[in-house]
Design a protein around this nucleic acid. Sequence first.
DNA 1: CTGTTAGCGCGTTCAT
DNA 2: ATGAACGCGCTAACAG
Lengths: 363, 363
Amino acid sequence: MVTTFLSVRTEKFPETCFNKAMAELAHSRVTIREVADEAGVSIATVSRVLNSRDDVAPETRELVSRIIQERGYIANRSARGLSVGRTGLVGVLVPLVYPAYFSSILSGATEALQEHDLRAVLSPTGHQHDREVTLLDRLMHGLTDGALIVLPEESSQELERLLDAGYHFVVIDPLMPLDDRIPSVSAAHTSGADQAMKHLLGLGHRRIAIITGPDGWVATEDRRRGYHAALAAAGILPDPELEVESNFEIDGGELAAGVLLDLAEPPTAIFAFNDNHAIGAIQAARARGIRVPEDLSIVGFDDVEHATIVTPTLTTVRQPLAEMGRTAVSLLTRLLERQSFETLHVELATRLVVRESSGPAPS
Amino acid sequence: MVTTFLSVRTEKFPETCFNKAMAELAHSRVTIREVADEAGVSIATVSRVLNSRDDVAPETRELVSRIIQERGYIANRSARGLSVGRTGLVGVLVPLVYPAYFSSILSGATEALQEHDLRAVLSPTGHQHDREVTLLDRLMHGLTDGALIVLPEESSQELERLLDAGYHFVVIDPLMPLDDRIPSVSAAHTSGADQAMKHLLGLGHRRIAIITGPDGWVATEDRRRGYHAALAAAGILPDPELEVESNFEIDGGELAAGVLLDLAEPPTAIFAFNDNHAIGAIQAARARGIRVPEDLSIVGFDDVEHATIVTPTLTTVRQPLAEMGRTAVSLLTRLLERQSFETLHVELATRLVVRESSGPAPS
DNA sequence: CTGTTAGCGCGTTCAT
DNA sequence: ATGAACGCGCTAACAG
């Protein structure tokens, strides 16, 4: 027995020496084998201790634990991932990371992931949606256990293929209507628009403009629908002149608002697609000597920090962005654990936050 | 030969069948072996075309590529990582992800990482020191190839230990003075403070207050030094009353500015530690009926988007945050590739951006 | 140009 | 309670 052991050890020595040399050279990390050797136990035993199994003798456990401590050993995630089939990583696909809209979602998501001992692997797409291969690639199939996809530019079809490939993911704020099997988290756009419009109508506004996002987007269409429904309910005929589309930036909002304010019969209120637009609208008004909210009321959407910094502060429809991130993580973890679901689709409530940028309609 | 092959295959059949069944069940992904089998080539050959080696016959390459396409095969990154010894992941430790300061850095860093075919593993520490330590530990061991550490709360000693352990990382905006061997990227705080002060002094201000960050931080001390040097150069005696410390939020700035403005002899200008403070100062001034910049000039630091949204827009010292992220990535990749260095420390220039919040001193 | 072989570090039977 | 042996999916020597 002992002889065999020794002979094995002898045979392995050159290799071990080489490895050690490499370790010194490359500062490579401690492996489970080194711990096992130093403790004079097998790799399997160390593995048992690592995963806190109960079939290990107390003394053995303590010995191994001590050596693990001393040598500062930490399991190699790649190896464990390969062996177990899970990596503890979640891909997060997001068009950009900087804008407050995205970083809010990201913030909530990473926090929630942390609580599940998962980590986010960031993959900004920069709005470039090439081929579906790159989608899979970006998801890092084989490195991530699943993914969160924010504002996907992919079609429902492409996402369905992902689903069929057995990949687990949750879509946050879908751009397009998605197949029912695709898990998603979004905000109550229609209701948000309704709240904004009721607020403005309640203030006596009758000529209310809307700045929208791109045609076809769920957010655009839902909010437009809310806008029209509210107008209809108030017996107001919609005026196509009062609907303009814009990009997402402040300058886009300024431009769009400029067009509206320069109309022969300008609106007394603007319902903007996001807070950036609303801020742009404030600037457009200021440039024309139009006072907000005395001459013009403005309501934004999102309620990011900007809304409280601009003068006047913004009345806006709050989207619970961080909460959307959290919720998506909660869906995803249940997917990963193959739990059953009541529903794959969560719509979080939006809420009007009234501040200074809206007021009674001018008489 | 053939017999052996068949026999091996036969032996493996039951297992293969099982795996296939599992695959159906768990929607597990296509492996390199399946591709190889279907193409009638060896695994090595598939690997070769995967890594676009040139020692593959054109027909073979095309055949394999086609099957890879058809079956939607994507390499398992864990396996590759285990084999190659690199994961293609970089840990990014950051106190929080939401604030513009951090998301700006993050934005630049992830972009640059993308260009090197690396991905960021996001690890918010929530300003908790112990969490930072354990996170670092976990990240560096077998999960990531290296790390970016933003505003580390770790002492130089702790970081040096990481260094000695052979970990590759770059510190962005060090809080404390670090050992010279630790690679770092920061902004020119002293010069930034100097520019701000010269600007204010040039406008005739003599009683200039400063809102600082926590004592001992590099940013605080460097800027304080710049502040004092500029005062001295102008022959102005520093007044301890005019130096107040604050947290990083708007309300902290408002509070600090409030104290300053309520002094018996209030300052005519405030040099704030960041844009949030400056915005808070504007609010404090507004609350007291003090006009900016007529009665009070304010200069911020950072130049995040907020600076252009607030009224009046902020004169501020611009830190190239995204660029700092990029630069750190560039240092890190060179570290990873064990290239030689001219310098491990990069200090990026800051630049005064003059907007509306600063003006001539009141007479 | 292609196949064979040998690991990468870890979890996991199956013996003992 | 513990160890030997195998496999996870892939890359990289080394033959031929």
